[in-house]
Amino acid sequence: MIENRPGLNLLAHLTLMLGVAIVALPVWVAFVASTHTATDFMSGTIPLWPGPYLVENYARMLDAGVSTSGTPPVGTMMLNSLVMALLIACGKIAISITSAFAIVYFRFPLRNLAFWCIFITLMLPVEVRIVPTFQVVADLGLLDSYAGLSIPLIASATATFLFRQVFLTIPDELTEAARIDGAGPMKFFRDILLPLSRTNIAALFVILFIYGWNQYLWPLLITTSSDYYTIVAGIKRMADAVDGLPQWHLVMATAMLAMLPPVAVVIGMQRLFVKGLVETEK
């Protein structure tokens, strides 16, 4: 903005505050709910200020879980989610950066076809191919395993495309200089490409970690053993109380806990994340 009028500033700030309020209110309500007992929420009025049961509720969730819904303690589910999200994020990055490397730097027959095949898979997210994918995973005996949770989600056209664009911005002279300097393809990849895509890798990691963490349908489908429940799918199972009222205070406490790792990743990698999305100069 070039204009600098106080009225305009005020309006801008009000709009932003309203936006924040809209986004933050449900989170606040969830937090408040997680600090009360179950009955407080069934009484008709929703409390808007935290109650006294914060420590008790969270300790119970972390320690034991809700036995009535058959879910393990939150700690186990968080660990499962973490393993899945990390496997998905790292796997996606590793696979897509190497395929982008192949597509950009090697002249092999049907190179363009290969690229477009990868690109077309954008049209086939898990939800579309869920039945055949389930069949494949079941036949391979991967149900109830970390491999089953992550491998079907690892291929990524978006990330391949992103790395392709990043590699295309790296000047040809740099590649040629490396060739003259005696760097073979793999050395070039390790010494030049990887460090130059560092910020992009970080940005992508943040996005993919959250994507992996938020997986709901797939883990719900292929995990039957509570040892492999993930937190997001677990919340759903908790809310499905079979004989009785859902224990909202505990569900909300779990939801609050489930939010923490993605938030930590975003905050921890904020600087690199923004740089990776904004920076264009190589």
């Binding site: 000047p171 740099l174 040629e176 200089a177 003259i180 005696g182 010494d191 030049i192 130059l196």
Partner: peptide, 20 residues
């Protein structure tokens, strides 16, 4: 023979220094 084995060194127009 590969560029690296030709025993030559090249100076490029845009320098082509490794930025990192």
């Amino acid at each position: 023979i590969e560029p690296a084995d030709r025993d030559i060194a090249m100076v490029f127009q845009n320098y082509a220094l490794y930025p990192h």
